[in-house]
Amino acid sequence: MPQFPHLRRVAAAASITGLALSLAACTSGSGSGSSADGTVTIGFVNGGDTEFHTCLQKSVEATATGSKVKLYTANSHQNPGTELSNIEDMISRNVDALIVQTVNVDALKGDIAKARAAKIPIFLTSVVTDDPTEILGAVVVDLTKVGQLDADWVAEDAAGKAAEVGIIAGAPGAASDLLTSGFSKQLPSNARVVANQPGMFNAAKAQDVAENMIQAHPDLAYAFVANEEMAFGARKAFAAAGKNVKIVTVNGTEQGLAAVKDGRFSATVANSAMTTGRLAIDNSLNLLRKGGADKIAKTPITLITKENLAEAPRYCP
């Protein structure tokens, strides 16, 4: 996996190619980083097409509408070249700030360089740089901790008994790597990882991976799946094989919570895309205006099981 040493965490997923740039909302506002009439113009470059990306954009758009922001949006569809083109288009529109949900760490390196050269502040979602002077700010999910919380559930459920564990990762890159490494390193010695394969954040691919996994390891007891979309595919494969593999996963969508409630998933770690999108707009504006906001904010995370379903935050606007 390619690495960029100044980055610690990134979420990325799904699909390919294309450029979709559109005006999402337009009202008037005020403050530093605004035009002569007080309007603050923000460009949001989304990275992909998973439910996370869709809900993140809905939240950014809704918050911008309520915050007197003129918003342009674009989607890079998990293509680094498209992402850089999107950044260049936003710069040509002379936006006051950029919010970027990056495709991968290598793409982000070029994004930051382009934005800094154009003297446009860049705010990141799901990623933070080691040197915060490079960016306006960020809102991130502690992906390592997400994996650790799921591992803690497995450890408690296994209760010291030997257990085989499978990992269905996402796409190669920092997001998936941080999730899976956090999970695997937190497992107790009695829980042994016997398979670790990428599902590419795609339900059909994850189902194929799970089918192969259960054939190779018929005694598999637990599976960590790097998002709920893939977890549904894995559940189908395990059920078809007549195996009640306990699944722990990530997101906290309505569908995911329903699966926890009826037992298809044993646990999920809720990290609201709606909260991430709201913080991205609110904190960008506050930081542009030199107001009170954390430069690096964290989206809260919560391990959700049948016992605490009511604690799950709303995932999508």
Rank of each mutant, 00 (worst) to 15 (best):
F52T: 06
N75Q: 07
N196T: 07
T41S: 06
E254N: 10
G33W: 01
N46T: 12
T305H: 12
S76L: 07
R93K: 15
N271V: 09
K261S: 15
I135V: 02
Y72C: 01
G277D: 08
E229Y: 12
R235V: 11
I301S: 15
I112E: 09
M274N: 13
M230V: 12
R116D: 06
V194A: 08
L309V: 13
N202R: 10
A115E: 03
Y222G: 15
Q101V: 15
R8Y: 14
Q197F: 08
T54A: 04
I122D: 03
L187C: 03
V40I: 08
L309Y: 10
T253R: 06
D37C: 05
A138T: 01
G199N: 02
G110I: 07
I120W: 00
S59Y: 00
L178Y: 01
V127H: 01
T302H: 08
L19Q: 14
D219I: 12
P121C: 04
G256S: 13
N283P: 00
L257F: 03
T39P: 00
R8M: 14
C55N: 08
A312C: 06
T144A: 13
I168C: 11
V60Q: 00
A240L: 07
G160H: 13
L187P: 00
A223P: 06
L136A: 00
A297F: 12
L98Q: 14
D111E: 09
G18F: 03
V250S: 06
T253M: 05
S34Q: 04
S34D: 02
P80M: 05
L124H: 02
V128A: 08
V193T: 03
I99R: 07
L21Q: 02
H53M: 15
F238H: 04
L220F: 12
T144K: 12
D282N: 07
A206G: 08
T302W: 09
S35Q: 04
D131E: 04
N75F: 06
